[in-house]
């Protein structure tokens, strides 16, 4: 447990001291959302209609773009290999890295989302659902993304490949996330959507680190 916490602390410290990465993900999120009114047009009614989808798609892309930070640097300087010697199962090392990834990407996105929702003129009823779906759903993005990040570790310039591997797997999260907000906006019960989203995340917690660990092991062979 100590090693587990130590890995999280170390990665968090690295993220804070190196800075930039979290900030960049946020800027990317903001910029992508800004592109939509420019593309679709500034009519408030249309923007309000597409706001949940735009926010979720942009958050999903921002989370995906930051996936290479999960293992890449540690893999290149050899510290990932060192970590596997610590005696901690690789799946737990992977889980620690996923938690850090969520804390430095998912959480900031979640906090920025309501501000952007205001810019997109989203209905007030949707704000609680927006926060809840992001809170429940973004961990699944980090968890599923870890598999893709681990599989493309040894691939040079794996960014495009990573998106091809990960985006189809993100679709259920996107669908339940957006439909939860839509339901709340239309005055319907958002609970079934939230429960399904939670089921995805809960199922991903044991399965994804396991699969990602298998992929990490491959690249360390």
């Amino acid at each position: 447990m100590n090693i587990f916490l130590a890995i999280i602390t170390r990665d968090l410290l690295l993220a804070v001291r190196q800075g930039g990465a979290t900030f960049l993900a946020l800027v990317f999120f903001l910029l992508t959302v800004t592109l939509f009114p420019l593309g679709i047009g500034p009519e408030p009614a249309i923007l309000a209609r597409v706001a949940p989808g735009v926010l979720w798609v942009a958050a999903l892309l921002a989370a995906m773009l930051s996936l290479d930070r999960l293992f890449q640097a540690d893999f290149e300087d050899g510290s990932l290999e060192q970590l596997t010697l610590s005696g901690l199962p690789i799946s737990l090392i992977v889980l620690a890295k996923i938690i850090t990834h969520w804390l430095t990407t998912g959480l900031p996105l979640l906090l920025a989302a309501p501000v952007l929702a205001i810019l997109l003129n989203m209905d007030n009823e949707g704000f609680a659902a927006l926060l809840l779906t992001m809170l429940i759903g973004t961990p699944a993005l980090s968890l599923i993304g870890a598999i893709g990040a681990a599989l493309t570790l040894t691939v040079r310039r794996g960014g495009v490949l990573l998106s091809l591997l990960v985006l189809p797997l993100y679709i259920p999260v996107l669908i339940f996330g957006v439909s939860g907000i839509d339901a709340a906006v239309h005055g319907l019960n958002a609970k079934p959507h939230l429960l399904l989203l939670a089921a995805l995340t809960v199922a991903a917690i044991p399965l994804c680190p396991w699969a990602a660990a298998a992929a990490v092991k491959l690249s360390l062979e």
Binding site: I147, L151, L169, P172, I175, L196, A211, A214, L218
Partner: peptide, 28 residues
């Protein structure tokens, strides 16, 4: 050899996901 194993991991992850994707798309 590595490519085979990595692709196999991906195929299994995909296989777990196919029913979930199918269900979520139907729902959507």
């Amino acid at each position: 050899q590595k490519a085979g194993k990595a692709a196999a991991v991906l195929a299994l992850v995909g296989a777990v996901n196919v029913p979930i994707i199918k269900f979520s798309v139907d729902w959507w």
